[in-house]
Design a protein around this nucleic acid. Structure first.
Lengths: 234, 234
DNA sequence: ACCTGAACACCGTTCAAGT
DNA sequence: ACCTGAACACCGTTCAAGT
C-alpha cells in the first residue's frame, strides 16, 4: 500500500470532489443546465471558484462526473429480466426515466462520447447482446444501434425540457404548442408532419420509446436468423 | 399582394438574414461550434453585433437557421429509391454524411426539437413510412424511432469531432485514443466494453450506421406482419 | 496541500444615438 | 427602416497570495 487514508481531515465538511459533484447535481436539478455555474456552485459550497479547480479539471469534467453518478445508479438498479431482451428493455427504460428526472443528463451524455458513463451503458447492453448469441463481429453494430437510439431519445427529451424551462412553461405545454404549430404547417409541403400533429399530442412518450427498442431488438434477432440460414444453405 | 418587393436596396451587399446565415455556416465549418460568435460574425460581415440582431432574434435562432440550410439541401438531394425502405436508407445516409461534413449540425439539431429542420426530416421519413403501409396509429412510433436513431448517431459524431477539435487532433486519432482507453478498462468490471475496443478501431462508421437503420426497418416490418396475422387469426 | 478572491479574456444581448 | 458601437451583466479559467 503506497497510498494511505488521509489522517484527520482538516474539517468535517471540507471540500472534496464528491461534495462538489453532489452540489452540482442539486444545482442542475433545481435550475437546469444553465444553473450550473462556478460562481453559483462556489457560493453553495461557501468557497471561491478557484477552490473547485483544485478538485475538478474543468466544467465538462464536472458535467461528466455528475452524469456518471446518475448513470451508475441507474445501471446498478436495473433488474435482470427473464431474457436478455427483457433486461435490455429494463435498462433502456431506466435510462429513459433517469433522463426524464434529470434532463441535463441527456445533453451531458451527448457531449461525453466514450467517457465513463457511456462505458457503463455499453457494458450493460453489451453483456445482454452477448447473451442473445449475437456473433462477435456483429456485436458492435447491435450495441451501438441501441446506444445511439437511447442517446437520441434522451437528447430530444432533454432539449424539450430545457426549451420549456427557458420559456418558463411546463414540458407538456411546450409539446402542446409544438403540436399546434405542426398542425398549421403548409398542407402541400408537409402533409405528413401535419397529419402527425394529432398523434404528437396524444402519444405516450415512454411506450413509443420502448417500441423503438423493440424494433431494434427484433431487427437484431431477424438478422441472426438470416445469418443462421446462410450457414445452413451455403 | 400586400407586401411588395423592396425597391432599390440601399447597397448591393447590404445585410440580410441570408447573408448572415451563409457567413455563420462558413464560420461554423471553419472554426467549429465555438467559432460562431456575434463578434466574429459581425467582423466578417463588416458591421457591429447590434446589426445582426435586427435580422436574427438570438443565437439559437441563428444556429437553427444554419442547420436548416444544410438539412433542406440534404433532403432535397435525396434520391428516391426503388422501395420506401431504400429511400429511407438514402435519406438517412444523406443525413449521416451531412453531419459528418458539418458536425455542428449534429448538436444544433439536438437542441432544436420540433423546429423546421426536424420537420423536414420527419416529412421525408414519414412519407416513406406511410408508403410502407404502416398503419396510421403506428406511424409516429416508427418515424420517431428512425429520427431518434439518426439524431443519436449524429450527436455522437458531432461530439467526437468537437472533442478532437478542442484537442487539436483529428477525429480518427481521437477515436484511436478512445479505443486504447477502452482496452485498458478493468477486466473484471467492464469485460464487454474492453473486448469491444478492437472492433471500435476497425469498424466502419457508415456501415454500422446503416446496419442500425436496417435493424429498425426490419423491426417495423416484422411488427406489421405480426399485426396482419392478428387480424387474420382473431 | 488546499483555499481565497481578484483579475483576465471572453461571451450574448441591449439600447441610445445616428443615417 | 436599418445600422453603429459602447455598455451591461454575465461567463470559465488562472494565479499570486495566503494558511
Amino acid at each position: 500500500m503506497v497510498t494511505k487514508a488521509r489522517s484527520t481531515p482538516r474539517r468535517e465538511d471540507s471540500l472534496s470532489r464528491d461534495r462538489i459533484i453532489d452540489a452540482s447535481i442539486e444545482l442542475l436539478d433545481s435550475s437546469g443546465e444553465g444553473g450550473l455555474t462556478f460562481r453559483a456552485l462556489s457560493e453553495r459550497l461557501a468557497t471561491g471558484p478557484g477552490a473547485i479547480y483544485w478538485h475538478i479539471a474543468h466544467k465538462s469534467d464536472l458535467l461528466t462526473a455528475a452524469s456518471d453518478t446518475i448513470i451508475a445508479r441507474t445501471v446498478a438498479a436495473t433488474v435482470v429480466g427473464a431474457t436478455p431482451q427483457a433486461t435490455i428493455r429494463a435498462l433502456a427504460l431506466g435510462m429513459f426515466d433517469a433522463i426524464d428526472a434529470h434532463p441535463w443528463v441527456g445533453s451531458a451524455l451527448a457531449s461525453a462520447p466514450g467517457q465513463l458513463p457511456i462505458v457503463r451503458i455499453v457494458e450493460g447492453i453489451g453483456q445482454q447482446v452477448h447473451a442473445m448469441g449475437v456473433p462477435d463481429r456483429q456485436q458492435w453494430a447491435a450495441v451501438s444501434a441501441l446506444l445511439s437510439y437511447i442517446l437520441g431519445v434522451g437528447g430530444q427529451n432533454a432539449a424539450n425540457s430545457q426549451f420549456a424551462r427557458t420559456q418558463g412553461i411546463h414540458r407538456a405545454d411546450f409539446l402542446q404548442g409544438l403540436s399546434t404549430a405542426w398542425s398549421q404547417l403548409d398542407a402541400a409541403e408537409y402533409p405528413f408532419a401535419r397529419s402527425l400533429a394529432g398523434q404528437m399530442r396524444t402519444h405516450d412518450d415512454r411506450a413509443d420509446f420502448l417500441a423503438g427498442i423493440d424494433f431494434i431488438l427484433s431487427g437484431i434477432a431477424s438478422q441472426q436468423s438470416r445469418l443462421a440460414k446462410n450457414v445452413v444453405t451455403t
